[in-house]
């Protein structure tokens, strides 16, 4: 049996959630609504996050341009995805929405540019 304590982030209430895992059965206490329970289960089974950062740009007005994973990726892959992001250099011009890395680390999620950069 394992116990995890997290704070719910769905609303300002910030319910303290206690999640118990026993033989693959998850129980949640402390939530005041169903959203809290869903959040707790997701956080314990497959927590995911959007990663935002920058990549280096060649020949642009700016040295770096903002990017994000287009969808959430597994939380445990955040630093591995950062390594992939840090390997990349793209060329100006950059348009918002341009794919910077396709299917990063086989997550089926693309890394895309979230800002524009013109040619210098």
């Amino acid at each position: 049996m394992s116990k995890t304590n997290i704070t719910c982030i769905n609303c300002p209430m910030g319910c303290p959630l206690e999640i118990t895992m026993e033989n693959d059965i998850i129980s949640v206490i402390g939530n005041k609504c169903n959203k809290g329970k869903e959040y707790a289960i997701r956080e314990i089974t497959n927590p995911t996050r959007i990663v935002t950062s920058t990549v280096k740009v060649n020949g642009g007005e700016r040295p770096v341009v903002a990017i994000k994973t287009q969808d959430e990726i597994p939380k445990k892959l955040i630093f591995d995805v950062m390594k992939e992001i840090n390997k990349v250099t793209i060329n100006a011009p950059v348009n918002l929405g341009d794919i910077v890395i396709e299917n990063v680390l086989n997550t089926n999620v693309n890394v895309i540019a979230t800002a524009n950069d013109k040619v210098k």
Partner: peptide, 22 residues
């Protein structure tokens, strides 16, 4: 503000700062 979390109320989706302003 290149992080996400902007726009939930106005656009019903999570945008980064540059995306929101764009």
């Amino acid at each position: 503000c290149i992080h996400n979390g902007f726009g939930l109320h106005i656009f019903g989706e999570q945008l980064t700062g540059p995306e929101y302003s764009e």
